[in-house]
Design a protein around this nucleic acid. Sequence first.
DNA 1: AAGTATATCTTGTATATACATGTTGTGCAA
DNA 2: TTGCACAACATGTATATACAAGATATACTT
Lengths: 237, 237
Amino acid sequence: MQKKYMTIYHDLVKKIQTNHWPKSTLLPSENELTGLYHTSRETIRKALNILAQNGYIQKVRGKGSVVIDISKFDFPVSGIVSFKELANNMQLPTRTLVRELALVEASQDIQEILKVAKSDYIWNVVRVREISGEKIILDKDYFNTAYVPVLTRQICEDSIYDYLENELKLTISFAQKEIVVEEPTDEDRDLLDLEGFSNVVVIKSQVFLDDTSLFQYTESRHRPDKFRFVDFARRVR
Amino acid sequence: MQKKYMTIYHDLVKKIQTNHWPKSTLLPSENELTGLYHTSRETIRKALNILAQNGYIQKVRGKGSVVIDISKFDFPVSGIVSFKELANNMQLPTRTLVRELALVEASQDIQEILKVAKSDYIWNVVRVREISGEKIILDKDYFNTAYVPVLTRQICEDSIYDYLENELKLTISFAQKEIVVEEPTDEDRDLLDLEGFSNVVVIKSQVFLDDTSLFQYTESRHRPDKFRFVDFARRVR
DNA sequence: AAGTATATCTTGTATATACATGTTGTGCAA
DNA sequence: TTGCACAACATGTATATACAAGATATACTT
């Protein structure tokens, strides 16, 4: 890491999480922090602003930065996080079952969503996520082959995002997400342990790269009783 | 508005929304913008960073700022937005029915959530939101009387947030939100037009003021078929 | 003793400069 | 014609200074 304000940010996060500065106390003032980190006030302020954005502190003019330890929860689906990254932070045992991996012509719907031509081929991946032995989540991924030419079963069982970022060197940047509740499809009923639930929670995401190109569409279909979405929000005026 | 970077931000938002710079084109460079707005580059950069945060542009190093018009959707429940503010942006007719407004001792649960003492009184508000004549949303609000001493039926029918911000001069600042799916309670079945749905989507929010004090807890209970949550997310590394 | 003015702390805004680093097109050389 | 070097321009990072404005403790005045 070479970006100074980022290393300071991460250091401050760690210190807040380890209770170095307990909840609802004040951080050292910006001027003191410049001394501690041997840097300028503007650099400190950049780090502090990211802390505020992410719900670690609340800045109060004339007073200082209050720690608000909205403790980063068990299952933060906010942001863009791969299942593997989630699983790593979870206490429960997880498993991924690849049910489908095929290069196919896009359906009408997917054509429009991914903005590809009629004859274009796309990757179609269907995976079941098992948590504590129960089939809880059905992930249906569609990738534009212009950006993801190759996919293997091995990659899908491990982590596609890991492959995209570390092997293909793609820079995943932002996503448009939508959460709705739907009736289960036959596929849902077939592949998930729905236990009589008459709804599934569906997270639909369009995911974009650094250069604003749309490369992925995903539907993540969850059993409703196991679904939880937490978010930190700021009031905008 | 006296903050220069905020007026520039709002001006740029307006110009993007009115297609002055169409989707996937480049904004003028930072240097050009300093000329247009008669200001310094850092001030322009502050405005641009807020645009990027809110999903209007994607900054690409060496190239410029690409407009990504993730068009602000019909029902943005992301952020902290009052029902009245939502209703004003909606095409459909809405109505609010106040079913309860009482000063009561907090239950065990609410005591813990709002962090008030056993004997403390809190405001308990129950409102039904009608959209196109259907009872779709049940809002259950709990306010700490230390910050909201007075509430009237009139205020609850109009907009509590409007009252808090413009009359009481409270500065609502941030919230911790959680979305889960639950089985309907008797109250849900009684007050909402559930039409046989066996689930409700519940948004639970703790809302905080400027000085980090917790003043409100809310449960917003939605009929699942009418629920939609959209969000813009950035990948953090 | 009470209240008020003030000094001094805090964060917020605006501006300037310097250099690093990524992108793109121009023009020269093979 | 192809390919490479380089200039020109874009954004990113780090630093400095000045002043505005909110919070707070101190000391002084009444």
